[in-house]
Structure formats: C-alpha cells, structure tokens
Design a protein around this nucleic acid. Sequence first.
DNA 1: CACAGATCGAACCGTTCGGTACCATCTGTG
DNA 2: CACAGATGGTACCGAACGGTTCGATCTGTG
Lengths: 211, 211
Amino acid sequence: MPVTKGTAIDPARTRAGLLAAATDLLYRRGLDGIGVAELCTSIGVSKETLYRHFGSKDGLVEAVLQARSDRVTAWLAGAAADAGDDPEAQLTAVFDALGRWHAEPTFRGCALLNAATQWHDGHEGTARATAARHLDRRLELLTGIARRAGAPDPAALGRQLLALVVGATVLADLHPGAAPSAPRDAAITLLRAACPTVSNDQRSTDVTSSE
Amino acid sequence: MPVTKGTAIDPARTRAGLLAAATDLLYRRGLDGIGVAELCTSIGVSKETLYRHFGSKDGLVEAVLQARSDRVTAWLAGAAADAGDDPEAQLTAVFDALGRWHAEPTFRGCALLNAATQWHDGHEGTARATAARHLDRRLELLTGIARRAGAPDPAALGRQLLALVVGATVLADLHPGAAPSAPRDAAITLLRAACPTVSNDQRSTDVTSSE
DNA sequence: CACAGATCGAACCGTTCGGTACCATCTGTG
DNA sequence: CACAGATGGTACCGAACGGTTCGATCTGTG
C-alpha cells in the first residue's frame, strides 16, 4: 500500500522525520550497525523514498551529522549564554550541561566523534570532515570564554579546555563509574590558573567541595 | 602450495606474526574496514590457519586488543619510570611520550578506544570491556603519580589527568593542527594546583613558554 | 620410511549489504 | 476529472561478509 491513506503529502516534513529517526537509530546502533533496509522499516518508510531524499546512505549520514552538530552546538552555546556574563560561570554551565548529557541513559558518546572513528577512512571522509568542523565550533565557544576571562593566550587555554571536554565525553561512555565532576573542576582550575585576575569576588569559592 | 618450502613449522611464531600483522591492519583500516579474506591474503596466511589459531574474527580482535593494551601500558609506564622519581617529571615524560606518538604519521587514535567505539555493542562487548580495562590501567598510572606527588585526593586528580590524556589522543587524531603541548601544560597546571607542596625547586619553571 | 601436525589454496555456504527498478496507490493542483 | 508528484511494497542485483570444508603438500618426529 503506497502513501498510507490520510497521510498528508509533505516532502519537507517527510525529510525532517526521516532525519530525526535516522539520527536516533544511527546513534544507538552505529553507522555500520544498522543497514538501510532495517533503517527504512524501523522508520516506516520505503527505500525509494529514502534514496530520493538523500541519494545514498552516505548522504543520509552526512545530513544526520550536520543536523546533530548544529543542534548540539546551539544547545551548548545556549547553556553558556544562560549563565550570564561571568566567564567562569559560563564554563561551569558548559561542563554541568555536558555532565547532565553524559548521565542520560541513552548516552553513547558524541555522535560526531563516534562517526569519525567508525568511518575513519573511506566514505570520502565525510564523517571525519564533519567531526573536525564540529570540534572547530566547540573550540570557538571555549576560546571565547577564555578570551572574555582575560586569558593571556585564549587559543592555548581553549585547546586545553577542548581536550577536557572531549576526554570527559569519551570517558563518560567508555569508562564506568567515577565522579562526573572531575572534568568541570579541572576546567575551572585551568581557567583560574591561566587568568590570575579573573572574577576575584568568586576566588574563595571552593569548587571541589560542591560535589 | 601448502607450507611454503623451506619455512620452519612453528605454531607459536606463526601466531605471533599473525597477531603483529593483524594488529597493524586492523588499526589502520578499522575492525570492520577489512574482512577476514583480505586480512589473510595481506598477512600471507590461509583462512584455515587463522581460524585454527584464533577461532573467529572476534577472537583475533580480542587477542590483538589485549596484546596492544599490554604493550602500550608497559611503554607508558616505562616512559614514566625513566623520568626518575619526581612526579612532575614523570607526568611531563608521559605527556611528551604521548605527544611523540600522536605526531607519528601512522597515528590514527588509540586502537583500544577506536575498537570500543566501532564495536560499541554486539560482539559480546569484547572491545568495550578490553578498552575499559585499558583505561583502568592508564588511570592507575596517573593516580600513582598524583599520589606520589602528595595530592590530597589522588583519585580525583588521576581522573582529571585521564580525561586530558584521552582528550589529547582523540584530538590529535580528529582535529588538525594546533599546539601539541597544550595537554601537557594543562596536566602540569592541574598537578601543581592540586599539590601545593610539590617540587618547590621546580616551581619557577615556566611551563607554557617551553613550546 | 611412516605418520602426525601444520599450512596453503580454493571452492563453497548462507547471510547481509547498499542500491535499483517497477508498479500500485495515494495526495495535491489545475 | 485529469495529471504530476510522492510514497509504500516487493523483488531483485552484484558484491562482500564470516565461516567451513577438503585435498594437496610441506615439516618434524620416531
């Protein structure tokens, strides 16, 4: 039965729903962990529809990763913005948001990093390139915080913080248990060490005991 | 032609060579990036030989990951031991060793972490479990340094350092360019911040300018 | 010399993969 | 009402996958 009776024909909506469902399934199962056939039956769509919208599985994956990178980047930037103007508060907010994400039962690591690892070579490097851009955007956020905090070398501090973010995300997936606040505490320590003059009024706050 | 003429029959050596070649190929191409058939022809061995030694592709992968974890763990511990008794010097040595590894042209990330990501589920979780044990061993090394440095909470500092190590390894693979010394500087900063009394004679050393 | 064990090469099996083609059936538009 | 476009369902394709089996041929041992 083609075009289930009563369904509104709306290619844009079809594509959006396809993208959302594929995002979830590919994240949970891995890029090679689910085939196009099962993907289509799980989503409730025919292969022809999928291929008309995305051209190939690579195209679908590319669209999924792009959309996810956009969403996650905006989400983290929003978390930082909601924390007000203080750079240290923004950094705390970023790591706390990451911590809540890591604690979700469906968490399986960063979809972009996982994709880049799974499709390290081949597939014309779509996943690698998208993940690299994703990290660029994350670095931009952290470097901005470092700059506003008055760090003498915002780029260097940004990269230190990025390493912490990435490490925390990978560990939350692959290493069991342990205190989830460690990366946040480390980030605050690095920020304070790099910016001797930052937020003096909060200098006495004991970061490590807030867990 | 069976058993190439003149070849000494030595199952142990065959297995060792098999393991070494498979380690390299599976690392470069990914666990799903190369099939058993191509694996065998590239190594120069028949499928029957491979299956007699390892039982299945999963068994081969498991053996490869175990051996790699052992080797890498010993290598890093050796780098730390060669740096003498000072914990800060040991930590520097560890991150410098990691930096040299990351700079190698064949570097493609940590084989254990890559494997755990590629075989996140399925395959009876062999890769995940092996990677978790690998991280345990790395954590043990870092926690030991933290403890000997006099950190009030060696476990917490160890986890902070582990996040840095993991983040640095992933970034070196997936993010282009940038200063490779950032993670090392961050590690030293964290160590000094956590241990107010550590190596006072080296306190004046400017870590950030050594790059 | 005889026999056991190790190895190669190749054929083979069932399954799954990404991708294509075709057709019936629905919606939306004029 | 007529027609174009979107969709579902199904069958199909060639290739690759992990794994098994068999026979020929070598080494090592007694």
